[in-house]
């Protein structure tokens, strides 16, 4: 097992995820990796390679069949559902491909959702939500419902929601997969900008090489196995 150093934010130690069914499917096989604090990592691979499964395991949305997952030094194995939820709530922001905004809540309410769930006072929730929507340049769309926003605007709201507690970890599952090229580039630029400003550890699952190449590090998966792990020298580094 690799040493979970203080600088390590995310670590996987021989993690396997198997789905039982008519035929067992091994989505991830014996994956070991660690991601240091503040790094921006992309995970690439063809369809069915296990990218989203890896992201779900890191985010505590799923549990490995074997092996251990560590987030900010704490092992996720053995935690109850509510304990896992607390880890997600306190340390992880999720950005989904299909945005997953609640359709009956306004932008302001969607962004404030995780904070209400933490029991924050209403005034404080409101202030933080406005601040975040301002950060993603949507201050003029506070009271709009998701149906009234463009795809790019919805994803910005989803990003603002993910940042609600300024989490140390940001996980993004195909964040531009449902957007046109131009909007996708805007979103990617926003994520990079936020990474630079907030210093979060960012993990992006993508099949888009442009997205992958814009990250400091790319991990490639194939058939559930880690086949490549490349660190780039960034311009200005």
């Amino acid at each position: 097992m690799p040493a979970v150093a203080d600088a390590t934010m995310i670590a996987l130690d021989r993690v396997t995820r198997q789905f039982a069914g008519k035929r067992d499917v091994i989505a991830l096989a014996d994956v070991t990796l660690s991601i240091p604090r503040g790094e921006m990592v992309s995970i690439i691979g063809p369809s069915g390679s296990g990218k989203s499964t890896l992201l779900n395991l890191i985010g505590g949305l799923d549990r490995p069949t074997s092996g251990d997952v560590f987030v900010d030094g704490a092992a996720l194995g053995g935690l109850t559902d509510d304990e896992l939820t607390r880890v997600r709530r306190d340390k992880i922001g999720f950005i989904f491909q299909f945005f997953n905004l609640l359709p009956t809540l306004t932008s302001l309410e969607n962004v404030g959702l995780p904070l209400h769930l933490r029991g924050w006072p209403r005034r404080k929730v409101d202030d933080r939500a406005r601040e975040l929507l301002d950060l993603v340049q949507l201050a003029h769309r506070l009271h709009h419902l998701p149906d009234e926003l463009s795809g790019g605007e919805r994803q910005r709201v989803a990003i603002a929601r993910a940042l609600s507690i300024y989490p140390p970890i940001l996980l993004a599952d195909e964040p531009t997969g449902n957007l046109d090229t131009h909007t996708g580039e805007e979103i990617l630029s926003l994520i990079r900008d936020l990474h630079a400003r907030l210093g979060s550890t960012v993990v992006i699952v993508t099949h888009d090489m442009n997205v992958a190449n814009s990250c400091e590090r790319t991990i490639a998966l194939r058939d559930g196995r880690l086949v490549q792990d490349v660190r780039r020298i960034q311009a200005g580094a």
Binding site: R86, R88, P103, L117
Partner: peptide
């Protein structure tokens, strides 16, 4: 189902 999944994903406890 999806809505309730999102709620849990963003930090909703079982009790909530």
């Amino acid at each position: 189902r999806r809505e309730l999944g999102v709620l849990q994903a963003v930090g909703g406890l079982h009790g909530q």
